[in-house]
Nucleic acid binder design. Structure first.
Lengths: 179, 179
DNA sequence: AAAAATACGTCAGCACTGTTGACATAGTTT
DNA sequence: AAACTATGTCAACAGTGCTGACGTATTTTT
């Protein structure tokens, strides 16, 4: 700034009086930080990070999805995905299968190993959620779900609805035909 | 893996039947991603990132806190903090004041510029929350707050309670004496 | 059949944010 | 005086995101 160095310190705190919903902003930050800390610890043992977790999770949730579809869910570039996906394939957590209709496509599937890791990562998160909802009524739970869903950009809510057993039965156009 | 390359693909999706609370896990991921995207766009104009946002936010929420206290809130190393804090000081968003009792300490305060930016960053987040809670009852809102708080590690809940106008009046031991 | 578009992979370089480890300097406590 | 504490800083590294560019296989369009 170099304005003589005399910027006056403001000694009062921002409060809810400023018209900002500070409590939920801060709660959301702390909650998400701790929510991700559980899997982070497990991932460290594998030399993986959060990006691996997300890829593994959605491949397990939507087996057979293509690279392009995965990019669309994660909203990252293919170069970002390439690094982590390659590692997951090299370590035998995910396999690629050439697309039956369009042979340019690569369908992504978890292996038994990949399924096991995905579940191991989801377990502590699910437990934390379960504990957090202890004593909550069905209405409370529903309020939490509605809130979280409403926090998502409207264009993306469709994606969420298309996940299996989240309201939709199966993913359209994909034969989830049990191995 | 090099086991002959024949890891069998699993073609079934993980579902709630696996005993995992998938809907909230996924909702939380998407919700947080979009929640942070609003300020991210503003920050880009300043050449700042999410780390700057967090520092700025808590300095505005707890003016006069020391470097050590800030590290304790953010749970990062001082080397990580140093980089972003230096930038915020150099750009005139934050000022340091030598601690009155212990002159080794640096109390951190926002400037008018820093306060303005903090509010500009909080505004879209607050609006998103407000919109997400549209049509929600007081009980719904309370359920959401209780849930988020319960998601935080128990040891850290005290920190949250000590933020001004989140249940506590003032920060213990700090004279928030209005400039 | 040739041309254009698509799906994917990859190389190279960069930015942001987190980590360890080591060391320096002031100021406080013992 | 010695030990401890609060802060700053240098250096190196990891993880994950980005852009830009280019190559190859395959499908679609002309």
């Amino acid at each position: 700034m170099a304005d003589g160095g005399a910027e006056k310190p403001i000694r009062t705190a921002i409060t809810s009086d400023d018209g900002i919903d500070l409590s939920i902003i801060e709660l959301f930050f702390f909650a998400y930080r701790d929510f991700t800390s559980d899997p982070d610890q497990i991932l460290a043992d594998y030399g993986f990070g959060r990006a691996h977790h997300r890829v593994l999770h959605f491949v397990n949730r939507m087996p057979g999805l293509t690279v392009a579809e995965l990019l669309d869910v994660l909203k990252i570039t293919k170069q970002s995905l390439a690094r982590v996906l390659k590692q997951l394939i090299d370590t035998g957590h995910i396999v690629q299968v050439q697309g039956p209709r369009d042979r340019r496509q690569r369908e992504l599937y978890p292996t038994a190993k990949g399924r096991a890791l995905a579940l191991a990562l989801a377990r502590p998160q699910s437990r934390r959620i379960h504990d957090a909802l202890e004593g909550a009524s069905a209405g409370d739970r529903s309020a939490v779900e509605r809130f979280l869903k409403a926090m998502v950009n409207p264009e993306l809510r469709t994606q969420i609805d298309n996940l299996p057993a989240n309201g939709a039965g199966k993913i359209a156009g994909k034969g989830n035909g049990d191995q």
